[in-house]
Design a protein around this nucleic acid. Structure first.
Length: 273
DNA sequence: CTGGCTCCCTGAATGC
DNA sequence: TGCATTCAGGGAGCCA
């Protein structure tokens, strides 16, 4: 499931193939994929727009056009790919943008999304979609001090809080489990019980696992394959019943906030007061 | 404010 | 073998 490192990888992968290109036309193959505007307006407004750049905010891809921003959230099973030459739609393609080629050769930006959870927004006001997001974990705002102070503004279970995109933007299920294990904190621990020292370790753990994910081009799991290899370096995620790489104890799987959650019971004790 | 539950979807895994 | 059921999961929305 695409999280920050996977979305970053997609952005870096497609940017060279789409930058400077003009969108000739759009084919909306699943109407609900376009969150806003209507499919008809979407096609009219995007036609003729030149791609100025591709970036990422949290788990959103941000494709800057001349008059609009095209925001794409891949959710569970979405993927973006540039296909060159004459093509026909593939299974699960939900949106296809035709791009004018540099030497007349056409190419296509295809949004493929098996489970149909992904969404795209075409808007001249990206803040209307991105405005409520918390800070970027790899940005300047997210420091040990910031994390400690904000953990103590509330009393939440740590993992659901890390997954709350208005608290911190971009961490998903995999990287939350990996970060908490690296920081030796239990997912059910309460945010306002974290010490300054623990907050510093957690802050650094989050940044560390996200950077490693990006360095390995993300994780390729389920049947969404993008060439990443971080899945070969999970320390707890999807490792139920196998030994903890730190202490050898069997990794346990539990449910926290309706999410599958992986912990080492020895490295991540749940302290009850 | 917090956490729990449902919904949106498909296909892989499991059950019989 | 084949059919039916269960389940995962990001995020929005609803409820207690």
């Amino acid at each position: 499931m695409p999280e920050l490192p996977e979305v970053e990888t997609v952005a870096r992968t497609i940017e060279p193939d789409v930058i400077g290109r003009v969108i000739i036309s759009a084919e909306v193959r699943w109407a609900k994929t376009v969150a806003t505007p209507s499919p008809k307006q979407f096609k009219e407004q995007i036609q003729g727009q030149k791609v100025l750049g591709v970036s990422r905010r949290a788990k959103y891809l941000v494709i800057r056009l001349e008059n609009y921003s095209l925001l794409i959230h891949l959710r569970m099973s979405g993927d973006l790919a540039v296909r060159k030459g004459k093509i026909s739609a593939e299974k699960h393609d939900r949106l296809i943008l035709a791009l004018k080629g540099r030497r007349g050769e056409e190419s296509y930006l295809a949004f493929n999304d098996t489970r149909k959870f992904g969404r795209v927004w075409l808007t001249d006001n990206p803040e209307s979609v991105l405005g409520k997001l918390g800070p970027e974990p790899l940005g300047r705002v997210f420091t040990p001090k910031w994390l400690y102070e904000n953990l103590h503004k509330r009393s939440r279970q740590l993992k659901p809080l890390l997954l709350d995109q208005t608290f911190l933007a971009g961490v998903g299920n995999i990287y939350a489990d990996e970060s908490l294990h690296m920081a030796k904190l239990h997912p059910l621990g309460l945010s306002n019980a974290v010490t300054p020292k623990q907050a510093k370790v957690l802050c650094e753990a989050i940044r560390s696992v996200l950077r490693e994910g990006i360095r390995r081009n993300g994780a390729s799991i389920d049947w969404v394959y993008r060439g990443g290899e971080y899945q070969n370096h999970f320390r707890v995620y999807d490792r139920e019943g196998t030994p903890c790489l730190v202490c050898g104890t069997e990794i346990q799987k539990l449910t926290v906030g309706q999410r599958g959650t992986h912990v080492c019971p020895k490295c991540q004790p749940l302290e009850r007061n």
